[in-house]
Design a protein around this nucleic acid. Structure first.
Lengths: 230, 230
DNA sequence: TCTGTTTCTTGACTTAAGTCAATGCCAGTA
DNA sequence: TACTGGCATTGACTTAAGTCAAGAAACAGA
């Protein structure tokens, strides 16, 4: 396991001078988690933050009834828990490894010392946080102002944009997570996702088989996503 | 109007060296808006960001049906629209002056040049963004996982903590916004707020008159907020 | 390939919260 | 003082989406 190489693969450490990478290398602790393992809990006092070497982490909130709302799936190269560095010290959500996972861990004080001296590092941090803020603002908008069909439609359109594969005049996509997890991302439950996709299939907007979705009528999907049509 | 003095009152510019404050002073443009005026719209390409000298700004999302979800009320000394600096260039929400308003405006390029050279400034920016991230994570949690009574109860408890005034064994608070705006903050509508407060009054948890709320049974309120009781 | 778990789908039912509409209540101002 | 317009309250009704339950399908481990 080459920590230095892993460091280079993180957006957070992009463009840093070699000496600072070495410095980071010396303070980073390599850790692994098993699939399903809880990494930290909402409200836990954090010792530091993590950067993913390999695997996927689910960041989520837990409701009083046990329902989960997924805030983010973090994957290779992404940091998580970095918010403990600068405001408060408690983690703002739960984090669970959804695959076998290897990470680099940085103790808060070790890392902060470095941020104070490396302007590029703070700028990278700002860029990452900006990104999260934007996603959160969108998530709030969807949860509060859009109905489930609109959220599902928007998700499909996003996937199509990111990894859709044209096939004639329709677009093939593959869901990146289970239906249950999709529901937890979109603030609903799996039954409702089933029904929503079912209705879309019935009206000829999409076709589905397993995790594959074929978008047949992208204009209609766009209308559903924007809340004009249902 | 002393711009330099206004700059000193912003968290964002706390602890900056005098010369950088002067630099900021020279790039800041003083602007005013009338109560009710729209400052920017969701998706607008932004030229820069604002810091409030005096007044209050509502940052919000708009649903397809015209419903509003308030993301944040920004007030004296707070920056807003700063996200356009680092990710993308479009504003992520609408901004409207809710009082007569005076602000300092910073053009993106002018300001960014300064961020690159002043580490304290980036750290301040990170602190502010961390704060927003944390609030957003909580907002997502409430919208997705808590019912309206729980959200209202939590809001009352927060107010009590921030500006509550003990009176015997009950706590007096004053709502900081109209019921309609409160509804828009909590992701619901004013009728539902009315009914929720009404029921709390009926069960003896609170007493209300106008914008004043008296918390009579804080333990019960805490239970409602955590979703254990309804 | 079998088998047991987990995930998905579908149906019937319930419920929280939104819509619509009528009315009351102030606050500002003319 | 009366009038106006915005805000708040209340009631009757509707509806989107959650709950519960049963069965089907998919997947992973042996």
């Amino acid at each position: 396991m080459d920590k230095l190489q892993a460091l280079r693969a993180c957006q957070l450490f992009m463009g840093l001078p070699e000496e600072n990478l070495n410095e980071l290398n010396s303070i980073a602790k390599y850790k692994t988690f098993k699939r399903g393992e809880l990494i930290f809990s909402d409200g836990d006092v954090g010792e530091g933050f993590y950067a993913i070497v390999n695997g996927r982490v689910k960041l989520f909130k837990l409701g009083p009834d046990g329902r989960e709302q997924i805030l983010h799936f973090a994957s290779n190269g992404e940091p998580f828990g970095e918010i403990t560095l600068f405001s408060d010290v408690s983690y703002p959500a739960f984090a669970r490894a959804v695959t076998d996972l290897s990470v680099l861990f940085f103790r808060r004080d070790d890392f902060k010392a470095l941020v104070y001296t490396d302007p590029q590092l703070s700028l990278n941090m700002i860029a990452i946080m900006s990104h999260h803020l934007r996603r959160f603002a969108t998530l709030v908008e969807e949860l509060s102002l859009k109905d489930v069909p609109a959220r599902v439609a928007r998700h499909l359109l996003n996937l199509a944009l990111k990894s859709g594969c044209e096939d004639g005049n329709c677009i093939e996509i593959e869901l990146d997570v289970s239906k249950t997890e999709l529901a937890q991302k979109l603030g609903t439950i799996s039954e409702t996702i089933s029904r929503t996709l079912g209705k879309m299939r019935l009206t000829g907007v999409i076709d589905t088989s397993g995790r594959k979705v074929k978008i047949l009528d992208i204009d209609m999907l766009e209308e559903i996503a924007s809340g004009l049509k249902k």
